[in-house]
Design a binder for these strands. Structure first.
Length: 274
DNA sequence: CACGAGACCTGTTCGC
DNA sequence: TGCGAACAGGTCTCGT
């Protein structure tokens, strides 16, 4: 489910509540159940239970696709991977069959980490560095300038799509937002990063920010059975539009595999540089 | 260094 | 209708 805009949407729901979910700021943890042991990446299950009890949720941040729950003593980091979700509901409401971790809160609500595919992970840590240290550019930050992006791009000779999906280069993009950004920037997904002109890099930089901001504005994308809430899927330019007309030139959108991921692009608007 | 394959998992949809 | 194959928003590790 989640790339940067979906994670940001979940963050907002946890901070302010909405869509049937409760806010969790200033609540404290009174109990905890781990229903799928592998969900807790760090520390050990025993230590996780003893350390998280009694902690207050002070603030919620995001870095790339990670949610950061700042508690009074530790940080609880959450990565939703493919099918995770994190929300707070009254304890009286039925539990999802895919609940993997439950934090009982002091107002008889509970924070539920749900994840059908069991890929998601949480870390309870003193310092963020160990988990987040290798992440690359934060794409909507002020420090992420077109110039620094261009310098980064030309320092590698890599296919642009796999490079954009590398979280140590840029954090938060996934399959949807990469395909959308590359179409907006009129770049073929196999373009080599060091073949880009500064002009093209600037256009890609702008496209990434436009697409992410629109995704956030629309509360993310809802696809399949996994995640629902946002409506960015109604504004896709290429993602899962194989065979449909390009919105710019009417050429049928093509689907290829790049880096073992489904990749959608317009063969007319996004020609491969030679 | 850059890339591809396989693994981790479950659930839905597609094709015959 | 039924059943196996293909596919899904992510990331890690290993081999070449």
């Amino acid at each position: 489910m989640p790339e940067l805009p979906e994670v940001e949407t979940i963050r907002n729901l946890l901070r302010r509540g909405g869509a049937g979910a409760l806010p969790i700021l200033n609540r404290f943890v009174v109990g905890c159940s781990v229903l799928w042991a592998k969900t807790v990446a760090e520390p050990s299950l025993d230590e996780f239970h003893t350390r998280i009890a009694g902690q207050v949720i002070k603030e919620i941040d995001r870095r790339g696709k990670y949610l950061i729950l700042n508690m009074d003593k530790d940080h609880l980091l959450v990565h939703l991977r493919m099918s995770g979700d994190l929300y707070c509901k009254p304890s009286s409401e039925a539990l999802s069959p895919h609940a993997r971790l439950i934090l009982d809160l002091d107002d008889t609500s509970r924070l539920i980490f749900e994840d059908a595919r069991k890929f998601g992970r949480v870390w309870l840590v003193k310092e963020l560095e160990g988990v987040l240290g290798k992440l690359g550019f934060e794409p909507l930050s002020a420090e992420f300038t077109d110039r620094i992006f261009y310098e980064g791009l030309i320092s590698f000779s890599r296919q642009i799509k796999p490079l954009l999906s590398d979280q140590t280069f840029i954090a938060g993009l996934g399959n949807i937002y990469i395909d959308e950004s590359l179409h907006l920037a009129k770049l073929h997904p196999l373009t080599l990063s060091n073949q880009l002109s500064s002009k093209q890099a600037e256009k890609l930089w702008r496209s990434i920010r436009i697409v992410l901001e629109e995704g956030i504005k629309r509360n993310g994308a809802s696809i399949d059975w996994v995640y629902k809430g946002g409506d960015f899927q109604n504004y896709f330019r290429v993602y899962r539009r194989t065979g449909l007309a390009c919105l710019e030139c009417s050429t049928p959108i093509e689907r290829i595999i790049v880096g073992q991921r489904s990749t959608h692009f317009c063969p007319n608007c996004q020609k491969l540089l030679v």
